[in-house]
Design a protein around this nucleic acid. Sequence first.
DNA 1: CAGCGCATGTAATCTGTTACATGATTAG
DNA 2: CTAATCATGTAACAGATTACATGCGCTG
Lengths: 203, 203
Amino acid sequence: MPSLLNARMADQHSSAPPPADRALPPTAWAVLGLLSFPGERTGYELKKWADASLRFFYWSPAISQIYAELRRLESLGYVTSRRSGPEEPRTKRTYAITDSGRAALADWAGSARDAGAAVLKHPLLLRVWLGHLTSQDHLRELVMEHIARTKGELKEVLDASAQAEGVEAWAHPQIALRWTERRLRSELELAEAMLIDLDELPS
Amino acid sequence: MPSLLNARMADQHSSAPPPADRALPPTAWAVLGLLSFPGERTGYELKKWADASLRFFYWSPAISQIYAELRRLESLGYVTSRRSGPEEPRTKRTYAITDSGRAALADWAGSARDAGAAVLKHPLLLRVWLGHLTSQDHLRELVMEHIARTKGELKEVLDASAQAEGVEAWAHPQIALRWTERRLRSELELAEAMLIDLDELPS
DNA sequence: CAGCGCATGTAATCTGTTACATGATTAG
DNA sequence: CTAATCATGTAACAGATTACATGCGCTG
């Protein structure tokens, strides 16, 4: 069997080749992507949007990071911002994507022939994997907790999906949400199956 | 509808309350966990183990970070190391978990009543979500690529699972691998379903 | 008027990766 | 002999979070 270690290490290099100068991290594209849908929004709103949809398939950056990314994107000319004048009650900074930003984003979206491997960080599985250090009861509890949380998330996604329903501009986000909905249902089945596996374990 | 932003922000604080002094990051526990199974191993071996199983449900740290974590764990007295003497061909440092380390790990594994939410970073979904910026063809290509990769991963997991088969010390890792196997099968179904959704989109 | 939600940002810190450097051993 | 694998580590940097600081506006 060929050891894949070096191959994988090499992958890690070649998978991020800065085409010309310096490539932006996916997070920057995600934030810019949030702005690629019709409308302008503030950093604060972006964070809520990310929490409500992005987070289910691509994690939601901390609010402070969103602000930082917005500043970077602005320095690159990919977004513009304006402070609200006296007409608005509150001082806030509203961002909008520029043509240049839209072009860069489209280029990024269309350039890769492979999106790259998904990364899953599943704390529950980490604990199950280390199950020999705990009691079966505790493990079961953790799994149940996970099931409860997942059901809550499913509800959230269903809500978000309902809101996107019918809006043409949201067709693709809608597909991502449907994918997420199915994924969460599968996550529930997976948890149930694991519960059974756990029960069948000789103590 | 109650805005969940502040609640979630507050969560981010309260979800990591350092019980006494300073809590270790999950990565440290993962590395220590790798050493909690019978046998001693080197940093290099740990990396391979992580690549072969941990990575499917909890990502594999860079080799340099594994070395760094091992040094930290050693400074905490959770592991000990010894350099191979002249009896071994190669100079290498072999690590073993200590009683104190095992106790700390068991405490960590048993302490939480909630393992915490899983984080999924799925680059393919990010691109689909931004699908309005690309062609359907390109999107389909990316999905196909994902399916191919997933099939490869499934094969790897099946292999790893076969190797763990029957070894009592590996019962829990085995469950994690079975979970992963099911998850990857579901991932394939999810991708197929998304392909259909994509086709049904009005251009 | 208290508390929450809206809104923005800075500073310190940590986590983690990449690139680099080095060298021994083994398989073809 | 030479390429791959085994093996360890450092330095620079990027990515990201947490804690902190501030203040307005609305609702009960």
